[in-house]
Write a protein that binds this DNA or RNA. Structure first.
Lengths: 116, 116
DNA sequence: TAGGGTACTTACTTGAAAGTAAGCTTTGAG
DNA sequence: CTCAAAGCTTACTTTCAAGTAAGTACCCTA
């Protein structure tokens, strides 16, 4: 660990942890959809038409490695893979809800807008 | 507005709005410090030694244009500029608190860690 | 007249995230 | 024998946030 890193860790705002796990371009949307119900890869593709297979796969892998999402493979042909919000992922739900609420209320013209 | 954008806007998760305003590398830290009290540019520099003047200025300008932060210039020599959390910025406090809490609880080894 | 303090800005470079396009695997159906 | 379906992976390119380093403006003090 290099000099300064420990101090940085101590001062580092825990908010960044949340931003880190939710911070991928499509992650909030994916989690939001999974909150509703378990979904297959192809269902997510259809529900988020702008996302590429690469990004969807990558974000799902990251959410899985963060343990927010559970991946279940059914060894059938053609393959079937289901993604669902884990119990751990569900601990994020109140956080997402309050973020959502603020976002809805305060998303308005005149402020800098996120890039679509 | 190009094709698809409207649909994207409608489906777009409001969580992204929050991530957008808090999403700069130093923004959560800056807001956290301003929540405590009004601070000068040079004070923020000292409190966040890793940030460069460029990034601090840029983030402060963005927070100001998002109306979360108020910038007050005192026309003295040498110049004095104070930054404080606006009333609007204060509406974000409960959101930041719950994010912080989740971050503190769930920041742990074994998960993908944010880049320092 | 030279230097110092405060609060920046500008030009350039680096690196990570995201996008594009194509390929792979397995097996049953035509 | 070939194709389609599902769920990816790989190689390459583009975009954009962040970092580096230097410069600017102002007036005061020594």
């Amino acid at each position: 660990m290099e000099a300064g890193t420990k101090a940085a860790l101590e001062r580092k705002c825990p908010i960044e942890t949340v931003i880190h796990v939710l911070g991928g371009k499509w992650k909030p949307t994916i989690l939001w959809l999974l909150l509703d119900s378990t979904k297959r890869f192809s269902e997510l593709e259809k529900l988020i038409p702008e996302v590429t297979q690469k990004m969807l796969a990558q974000h799902l892998r990251e959410l899985e490695s963060d343990q927010l999402v559970t991946r279940t493979v059914y060894p059938s042909v053609p393959p079937k893979v289901e993604y669902s919000l884990s119990d751990y992922g569900k601990t994020l739900v109140p956080v997402m809800e309050i973020m959502c609420k603020w976002g809805e209320t305060h998303q308005r013209p005149g402020l800098r807008q996120p890039v679509l």
